[in-house]
Design a protein around this nucleic acid. Structure first.
Lengths: 206, 206, 206, 206
DNA sequence: TATGAATGAGAGTTCATTCAT
DNA sequence: TATGAATGAACTCTCATTCAT
C-alpha cells in the first residue's frame, strides 16, 4: 500500500515504446522537493529523467503546469482518503481519528509530494492558483463539519474550531519538515500515526 | 513588545544621511516572504528600497549572506525569549506554557520573518547552513530538556518526547501559513496564544 | 476565374484517401501570411491541417522548400497571364492596360499568396533564392519591353522607364497591404482594377 | 540633411561613459532590415553592437519594445515633414507635390527604417500595435484631407480618393523594395523624387 | 501515410554580481 | 554611498528536423 511514487504503477510493456509521463512526474517531484520550485531548473529534471530539457515539453506545457499536475495528484489522494473513511459511517471522533492516521500514513510515505504541496503551492498563479486554493478550502471545510459534529456531541470542548483546525493541520502538515524517508523508521509508522492522532484528540478534549 | 519590524525602530532625525541597513533588511524580508528566496530577485529588493540593484552590495556580500542575516535576527529573538522565561524559575509545565505563548506572540507579530525562517532556511549552503541548523538544534534541545523534566515530574504522560516535540513545533510553526498580519485580529492574539498553549499542554497530559 | 485557393479545387470523393498536398499548401499560405515566414512555425501549419508536425515532412523536404513551392505557384500564375494577354496581339498600351487589370484581379483574389510573394521571398537562400529572383527579373523584363515599345510609339512620355516600372509595380504590388479579402468589396473589383489601370496609364502619358 | 542614422548625432563626450542607446537602435535597424523582425535574433544585434545579448536589456524591455521604438522614430520624422510643409500654406496640389518629394527623399535616405516600418509593423501586438496603427491612420487622414481639398478645387479628377491614396502610397512606399542605399545613385535622388511626384500628380489629373 | 517521441540548437529573458566613476 | 553599465551564466521555452513504428 505504501507507494511513494504513485505514477509508475503502469506495467511496462515489451517493445519499450515508453510513455515517460510517470518518470517525468516523479523526477520533478524529487527535484522540486530538493531545490524548491523556483530554485529547481528544468535542466535538473531533464538530467534526472535522462532526456534533453527541450524534450520535457512533450510532457507538459510549462514549468508551472508541471507543478499544478503534481499538486492535483495530491488532491486526488487526500480526497480519496476522505471518501473512503467517510463511507464507514463512524462517530465523528472515530472518523477524525481514522482520517488523521490514514492521512499521516500517506504523508509518511510521500514526504516529497506533501512538502511540495504545502510549500510550493503558492508559486502558482492565476487560474492554477485558484484551482489549488479551492481544493484546500474543500479539505478544511470537510474537517470543519466533522469537528462541528463532534462538538455538538460534546466530544470536544468549547474551543474555537477554526483555530483548532489550524492547530491540528499545523501538527499534521509538519511531517515533511522532519520525516526523512530514507532512514530506518524508528519509531514505527504505526507508533507515529497513533501518537499523533491521540495527541490531537486529547488536545481538543472537553 | 510586539514589534513587527525589528529594525526600523531607530528614530530618523531629519536631514540625516542614515545607514539604510535596516531598510534593506526589511525590504528583503517582505520580498523573500512574498516570492520565496529563490523566486525573489535583488532587483525586487532594490525597487522596494528605492535604490539601484548594484547599490545593494554595499549592505551585504551576496544574496545568500542577506538571507543568513535575516535568519540570525530570528535566532536572537527566540533565544532572548528562552532566556527571559528561564530566568523566572517556574515549574516545567508553567515554563513551557509561558514560552509557547511568548513565542507565538512573536510569531503573530512577525509572520514574514517566521515564514522565511522555516521555509527558506534550507536554501542556505555550506557554513551558513550549518550555522542555522545548529541554532535549530539548540532550540529543540532546550525544549527537550524542559519536557524531560516535566515527564519526570509526572506532569506529562508516557509518550515519545522527540515525537512530541515534532507535534508541538508543527502546530506552533504553522502560524505563518494561516495568520494574515494585515487583517483585524479576530480572535484576539491573546485568545490565540492561550488556546494554542492549552491545546498543547492538554495533548501531552498523562 | 477568381479562384482564391488554387489548390483545393479537386472535388473530394467520399471515403477516398486523398493526397493532402493541396491542403498542406493552403494551410501554409494562411499561416505564412498571418505570421510571416520566420514567425510561423510548422506546428502552426500542422494544427491548421490537422496533422502532427512530423507528418508534414511527407509533403515537403524543409520549411524553406515549402516556401519555395508557394512562390512557384505564383510565378506560374503571372506568367500565364502574360502569355494569355500577349497572344492577343494588342497595341502596347492596350496590352499593358489588360495585363494590369488581369494581374490586379488575381492579386485581389489571392491577397495572401501575393503578400507572401512580395514579403517573404527574401527569406529564401542559395539556389532557391536565385530561382525566385530570376522569375522576378523575367517579369520586369517583360514589362520593360512592353513600355519600350509604347514609348517608341509615343504613347508614353519621355521618362526613365526603369523608374517608371518601380512606380507601377509599387502601386500594383501594394494590394495585399490594404485589401482585406473577407470584407464586402466596395468599391467593386472591376472599379478598383479599372481606376488603377487608368491612373497608371495616365501617370506615364506624354 | 541626408542622415541615414538619426540617432548617432549626439557628440561623444570625453571620458567615454557612453550611453549606447543610439548604437543599439542603429544596430537593430540594420539587423531587422536584413533578416526581418522575426528572423532576427537579439544575438545578432548584440554582435553588431559588440556587447553580450543579455546586456541589451539595459536599453530596452523586450524585443518587441525595441521594434516599437524604431517605429516611433519614423513617426516623428513623417509628422515633422507634414508639419513643416503644411506651415507653408501652399495650394493643395503644390503641398502634395512637396510632401511627396520630401517624404521620398527621407525614404531614400532611410531605406532600412522605412522597410521596417512597412513590413515589420504588423509583428507588434496589443497596445503597441494599436499605437502604430493609430499613427498610420493619422498619416492617411492628413493625405485624405489634402486630396479632398484638391478635388474641390478641380485640381484632380473624379476618382475614388481612398483608392487613390492606396495607389499613391503603394508607389511611394515601394522605395525600400528597390532602392539600394549602398549603390551610386543613378538616377540622382532629385530626379527620382521629381519623376515620382510628377507621375503621381499626373495619375490623378482630371 | 501518419504517429509519437526525441533531438539539438538556439530563442528571448532574467539575474547575481562587478566595478569605474 | 550610490550609480550606470556591463558581464556571463543560467533559465524557460520553441522549433525544424529525424526516425522507428
Amino acid at each position: 500500500m505504501p507507494n511513494s511514487s504513485n505514477s509508475t504503477t503502469t506495467p511496462r510493456t515489451k517493445g519499450e515504446r515508453r510513455n515517460r509521463d510517470a518518470e517525468v512526474m516523479d523526477a520533478a517531484v524529487r527535484i522540486f522537493y530538493e531545490k524548491g520550485y523556483s530554485g529547481a531548473s528544468l535542466q535538473d529534471v531533464a538530467n534526472e529523467v535522462g532526456v534533453l530539457k527541450g524534450s520535457l515539453y512533450y510532457y507538459f506545457d510549462s514549468k508551472e503546469d508541471l507543478l499544478l499536475r503534481i499538486m492535483k495528484e495530491s488532491h486526488v489522494q487526500s480526497e480519496t482518503i476522505f471518501e473512503k473513511v467517510s463511507a464507514k459511517g463512524l462517530d465523528p471522533l472515530d472518523e477524525l481519528d481514522e482520517i488523521l492516521q490514514e492521512l499521516m500514513q500517506w504523508y509518511l510515505d510521500n514526504v516529497e509530494r506533501v512538502a511540495i504541496y504545502f510549500n510550493e503551492g503558492r508559486r502558482l498563479t492565476g487560474e492554477r492558483l485558484e484551482e489549488v486554493e479551492a481544493a484546500g478550502r474543500r479539505f478544511e471545510q470537510h474537517l470543519y463539519t466533522l469537528l462541528a459534529r463532534a462538538k455538538k456531541d460534546g466530544a470536544i470542548g468549547d474551543i474555537d474550531l477554526r483555530l483548532c483546525i489550524r492547530f491540528i493541520l499545523g501538527a499534521l502538515n509538519s511531517v515533511p519538515t522532519w520525516h526523512k524517508p530514507s532512514k530506518q523508521r524508528r519509531p514505527s509508522d504505526k507508533a507515529i500515526t497513533r501518537q499523533f492522532a491521540e495527541m490531537t484528540i486529547k488536545s481538543m478534549s472537553p
